[in-house]
Simulated assay, not measured.
Amino acid sequence: MDVLVRLVVALGMLAVLPMGLALVDEPGAARLRRIWWLPATLGAVSPWLPRGPAATALAACYAAATLALALLAPRRLLRTRSLAPREIAVLTALATPAVAGLALTAERHGTALFGFSLRMLSLTVPHFHFAGFAAALVAGLACRAGDTPAARCAALGVPAGTLLVLAGYFTGEWVEFAGAAVLTCGMWLVGLVTLRGARTADRTTRALLTVSAATLVATMLLALSWALGEASGLPHPTLTWMAATHGVGNALGFTLCALLAARRLQHSVHPTTRTEERS
Rank of each mutant, 00 (worst) to 15 (best):
H129M: 09
L189C: 06
A60Q: 08
R199L: 14
R203A: 15
V182I: 14
L14P: 08
F130V: 11
A63Y: 10
A243K: 01
L78G: 07
H270V: 13
G229T: 10
Y62K: 03
L11E: 12
F116K: 10
G146E: 15
T245G: 00
A244V: 08
L72S: 02
T245M: 01
A142H: 08
R76F: 03
T56D: 02
T219D: 07
T111G: 00
R81M: 08
A89H: 03
L11K: 04
W226P: 02
P27Q: 05
L189Q: 04
T238C: 04
V5M: 03
T96G: 01
Y62E: 13
P47Y: 00
H246C: 10
R51H: 04
L141D: 05
R34T: 12
L72K: 01
Y169P: 00
E230N: 11
A44H: 11
M19C: 06
L137M: 10
A64H: 11
P235W: 02
G146W: 12
G52Q: 11
W174V: 11
A63I: 15
L94H: 02
P271F: 02
A180E: 13
E26R: 00
G115T: 14
A181I: 11
V5T: 15
L7D: 06
T184A: 14
P18L: 02
E277G: 01
L113Q: 09
A207D: 07
A93K: 02
L228T: 12
G197P: 09
L83N: 05
V9A: 01
N250Q: 12
D25F: 05
T272M: 09
A258H: 06
G179Q: 12
F254L: 12
V3N: 02
P97N: 04
G168S: 07
V211Q: 01
A60S: 15
T184D: 07
A40M: 03
P27H: 04
L265T: 13
G28F: 01
A106F: 15
W188S: 06
E26M: 01
S279E: 09
F133N: 03
A55W: 09
T200M: 04
E276Q: 13
A60R: 06
A10H: 05
G161Q: 06
L21R: 05
L32G: 05
L216D: 05
V193A: 03
V90S: 00
Y169D: 10
A243W: 01
V90M: 00
S279T: 14
L58A: 05
C143Q: 12
L222K: 02
R206P: 11
P271A: 03
G191S: 03
T272R: 13
L121D: 09
W226V: 09
A30V: 14
F116H: 15
L121R: 07
A29I: 13
L208E: 07
W174K: 09
A262F: 08
A10I: 11
R144A: 15
T171D: 07
A243C: 08
T41S: 15
S268E: 15
